[in-house]
Amino acid sequence: MDIKEHIRQIPDFPTPGILFYDISTLLADADAWQVTMGRLANAVRSHQPDVLVGIESRGFLVAAPLALKLGCGFVMARKRGKLPGKTVRYEYSLEYGTDIIEMQEDAIAPGQRVVVLDDLLATGGTMAAAVALSRQMGAEVTGAACIIELSFLGGRNKLDIPVTSVVAYDE
């Protein structure tokens, strides 16, 4: 199955000149979603994760069902101020400033094997930050995965772990 056929492309969203890759059409097709999750499960399983970290917010849609399928835990990496209780934060640079992601203080136990997931890998900044935050919490980060990779943006070059994508766009 060609998963690209189930991903809608929306020009000029959220701003002019941006081509948005919309996974809502993929999520709405039960067969395509099942195939996508199967491909991710096969790739992620080899990393033997204890926990999957999903990046806010569409990464939750990827990591939570995959964690259930693989029988491991699921942890949310969220923007500052979105999680209750004590959190651990990581500040990282963006093209236009800085941002902060957080996880709950007790979400990852030191030494746990972690795979970080998102729906899309573009420039790699947020994925690299989630990897760094997981390591800061004591995790052994064994890989990263996403549904869509915009390979022409070189995001995987910011990561020092194996990266799996279900589909890649070269331009």
Rank of each mutant, 00 (worst) to 15 (best):
A28Q: 14
P65T: 05
A63W: 00
P65S: 08
P65V: 09
A32N: 11
D29T: 11
S24G: 06
A41R: 00
V53S: 02
L66G: 00
L27E: 10
V53W: 04
S24M: 15
A32E: 10
A67D: 04
V53R: 00
W33A: 08
M37P: 05
L61R: 01
V44C: 11
R58D: 08
G38A: 09
W33D: 05
A63L: 02
G38H: 05
A43E: 12
G38M: 08
S24C: 13
L68W: 11
A32P: 08
V44R: 01
L70D: 02
R45P: 01
P49N: 08
L66H: 06
N42A: 14
D29W: 10
L52I: 11
T25G: 06
V51S: 08
H47P: 04
A32D: 05
V62I: 12
V53M: 03
T25Y: 13
V35H: 11
L52W: 03
L26S: 07
P49G: 06
A30Y: 14
L70N: 00
L26C: 08
L66T: 00
V44A: 12
T36G: 07
A67F: 01
D31F: 05
V51F: 05
K69C: 03
G59A: 02
P49Q: 08
L40N: 05
A30E: 15
A32F: 13
S57C: 10
P49I: 00
A67L: 04
L66K: 04
A30T: 15
T25W: 12
V35C: 13
V35P: 05
W33R: 14
V35S: 10
V62W: 01
W33P: 02
H47C: 13
S46C: 10
S57N: 07
L68M: 12
L26E: 07
D29P: 03
R39V: 09
P65A: 04
E56P: 01
P49S: 07
A63K: 01
E56W: 05
K69D: 10
D31G: 10
I55L: 13
L68S: 13
V53C: 12
G59D: 04
A63D: 03
S46F: 04
H47Q: 15
L61H: 01
T36V: 11
R45E: 10
